[in-house]
Write a protein that binds this DNA or RNA. Sequence first.
DNA 1: TACCAGGCATAGG
DNA 2: CCTATGCATGGT
Length: 294
Amino acid sequence: MEYEASNNTVRVTGISSFDLGQTLECGQCFRFTKDDENSYTIIAYGRVLHVAFDKDTFVLHPCTLEEFENIWMDYFDLNTDYEEIRERLSASDPVLKEAAAFAPGIRILNQEPWECMISFIISQNKNIPGIQQIIKNISERYGDRIRDGIYAFPTPEQLGRATKEDLRACKTGFRDKYIMAATEAVLSGRISLDELISIDTDEARKLLMSIPGIGVKVSDCVLLYSLRHRDVFPTDVWVRRIMQYFYFSGAEKNDAKEASINEIHTLASSKFGNNSGLAQQYLFHYARKLKIGL
DNA sequence: TACCAGGCATAGG
DNA sequence: CCTATGCATGGT
């Protein structure tokens, strides 16, 4: 990988296994818009960033050399060798070979833990446009204005000022109490999200799940998308469907009983091991595009 | 109108 | 451990 900065723009070449659309649109990130073919605007780290691919060059703007090295290089996980992980997953399993070949440019973003946690609390029982709308409402009401009409995700202190009624006005619905509980856990210091990066996965998950409104699926999303635990396998309805279809249905497809989350996790762990997170991303994307069964 | 959306808490086997 | 139900809200 090589990069250079000029005119508040950074150009990166020599990245393999990276596609903007596949990475942003596989459901791990909510705050972006698609401006054009292979051109997106992202809001993160209190900044607005335009990203695009110009032939084989990854272009970021506005972006200084320091911002690229300190923030975005890690955000897009550019220091990880995805070629190697993808080959390992492909070789170990025929289904993954298909799924990975379908979207080989997926990377797992390293997002901000606080925003990620609140966003996935919001995500329960909502579709993606609905989730994006609520996050936008909350940011506009409590976050700092970055520039006209664009607001940063609020800090814990800022969101801590919200009352239940305020949150309801942002259309959070029954999630209002969960958001308040998570905010309180962070503000009080009971849970330090950054510390969850370096502790054992199961221990970190246990701590996250001590917050009401965070269950197995939401905690696994936070662990994978922001806390760098790549061995988890977030299992939502789509992943569940595709796992059922490929791994748990017998010869007669319909009479097999539904596999439980525990059974799916056990199978994922034994097949994909430390790379379960990326395997889940490939499978999620694959399932949504193919719309298998149901 | 009724039913669903990347779940979770709760009450009950 | 597993299963059934309600849940705010907006969209078909």
